[in-house]
Design a protein around this nucleic acid. Sequence first.
DNA 1: GATGAATGAGGGTTCATTCAT
DNA 2: AATGAATGAACCCTCATTCAT
Lengths: 208, 208, 208, 208
Amino acid sequence: MEDDKKHRILESATKVFAEKGYQYATISEIAKEAGISTGLTYSYFANKLDVLLSIILIFLETINSRNKKSLTAAVAPLDKLYTVMHNFEDLLIKDMKALYLVKVLNEALPHIVMIKDKKLQEKRKKIILENKSLIKTIDDILAHGQKKGVFSKTLKPSVQRQVLCGAIERVIYGLFFTTYSGEDIGYSTNDAHEAIIQLIDSFICTKR
Amino acid sequence: MEDDKKHRILESATKVFAEKGYQYATISEIAKEAGISTGLTYSYFANKLDVLLSIILIFLETINSRNKKSLTAAVAPLDKLYTVMHNFEDLLIKDMKALYLVKVLNEALPHIVMIKDKKLQEKRKKIILENKSLIKTIDDILAHGQKKGVFSKTLKPSVQRQVLCGAIERVIYGLFFTTYSGEDIGYSTNDAHEAIIQLIDSFICTKR
Amino acid sequence: MEDDKKHRILESATKVFAEKGYQYATISEIAKEAGISTGLTYSYFANKLDVLLSIILIFLETINSRNKKSLTAAVAPLDKLYTVMHNFEDLLIKDMKALYLVKVLNEALPHIVMIKDKKLQEKRKKIILENKSLIKTIDDILAHGQKKGVFSKTLKPSVQRQVLCGAIERVIYGLFFTTYSGEDIGYSTNDAHEAIIQLIDSFICTKR
Amino acid sequence: MEDDKKHRILESATKVFAEKGYQYATISEIAKEAGISTGLTYSYFANKLDVLLSIILIFLETINSRNKKSLTAAVAPLDKLYTVMHNFEDLLIKDMKALYLVKVLNEALPHIVMIKDKKLQEKRKKIILENKSLIKTIDDILAHGQKKGVFSKTLKPSVQRQVLCGAIERVIYGLFFTTYSGEDIGYSTNDAHEAIIQLIDSFICTKR
DNA sequence: GATGAATGAGGGTTCATTCAT
DNA sequence: AATGAATGAACCCTCATTCAT
């Protein structure tokens, strides 16, 4: 029951943050969207920033946990890379609400390093750790593939990872933008998926 | 002298917008950073949003104008693509201040569609036009290369462009993040440049 | 409870507007005078101008409604004129706070025509309508009296009305000025009442 | 030359004060209307309020001085009253610019009592004196007429004067309102003049 | 004298946060 | 637990006033 409310707040907040931007989103609008009163939000979260951080932390924890589970099944670096990218994609494209996340993450992540609110230090550290963990997962797979000779060695894993993540985010973000602004971007969810596959095949894998 | 001040405001605003986010940047901080008083900002710009739009418009105008000039020299689609990407990179990496732009653009562009302030409608329309023009330039080159058989036809130009732009932005953004947060990103400007080249070669060009 | 607060804001605003003039009255002073915080004012009114318009609208609605009720009892034009003037006087002299109204109305009415704030258009239109209705009530009575031969025909009803309203407002305003500046005006509420009666008898009625 | 500029400032200020209201009038608009720079205004006036007070003081001085001159010619109280009212009317109706004065006086006079700016105390006192002098002139004429039995004694001179001044101001203000808002009030300058004459004849004079 | 760029105090307004109910 | 009225700090923006030129 309580958890249900907390979850509803997080969902409505994700939507409102995405549509209005963090600052222009108001707690009262988030609460109304969640079907509760303004004040009750503060029973579940310390403050507005805490809501944002919670959204991000949950996303990172979820993806890291999924990766951990699903990566045990895969052995080959390429399979592992597909798995990670699939989890990423899956979490973001599965429904409308999830698409908002890309927007929110994009806006918020760069600022998390400099959060000073004492009440939120612990959550901030967790986020940074989870983020590093996600990055490490990807970079390790890339390094492993390079070692095995199946991935191109001409670029550092860190740059390869940036290219992959930047591309996937942008491609998915385009999908979000279409649905929320009405402007047509000219491609579909399937096109987006295909692009990621081809990017891995051409940019990461060594040519045979 | 006047133009100097306007320019200084734009520079300091770019910095502050990048560091704090548009919404948390205050006019008084921007003004202080520019070495002038709060009020004077309003002699040069209609309001806070106008400052943001001006930054974006100038960037888009500059890059479109550069592309127009330099693209006449190139004939082959691949050369054209290199040229456009080079202009993009060049404008963003040449100095510290320019790096802020990526951050600002990323944050602001999605919201521009929905600006309602009457005073800014003209500027808003200009930005949308310049942005479409930039997109069209890239998409035309990609389509041209596909027609000629030198670029892969398995993806629509619009998706290819998203991958290219997302990757380049993220890679460059990493550089910005390093300098402003102190965290090490693990690669250099040269690595970034090399990544773009290889991305084009592998992801866009047909394999020979 | 809520209505009580709205009413208190309107009362304190009337006072402060009267004493300082609309333009120099501050919301924070109005709120303090009403015993609430600045922000709460905005729960009841859209903005400062809305407070002013509400004061005026309520006054006009009240006087028009009173006129409508009390005019049914009167038949002779002179009785009707007395009734209307009595309502006017009664509403303005009955207590100290109401006296402020004359001042506020005088200052504000001329500017209402040119209000552009979209949120206030409806209220603006209502005020204009109520004002026209009030004017029409008076002018109709004057025209009726002229037709019956009991009122002087040498002047148009519109001019007669201006003389009546200008005189009554100024005479009552003198009373207000006394109480709020400490300067002696040299006449009393009774003198004011008598003046209106005599003005009607001599200036409006035909000599017998 | 200097006096010419000072005069131009006063004229443009009268216009702008009337159209926008004192607070919403800006020094820069007044200066532009007068064809000079913002800063130069401060060579002629201590501050914005000084401009307003100067307009009022000059008006009061002018009318008092005219009254003094023209009243020597008149002997009978009725002639004197006509003279004073004529001067009043004449000063206000003679051209468009003068009409603005009614508006400005109406708005400003009530607040003059409470001006605290030390630089303006002298001017403030002068205005109060001139105003009292104007009132005294009228009241003396009315008292004189009452003594001679030509003016009605049933009301105190002070109330009679309020009725006269209120009526004349309102009637003339209607003319101003027409020209500046475009709304029709339904009477002309001649109607206004005729109204004043009849008001004196019926309301002030004893019936013969 | 004359300019108008520059200052900065002040007020309207918003909204995160609190707390009485 | 739940509400939402109430608070007040913070920020955008305006404009009277100053002063270097």
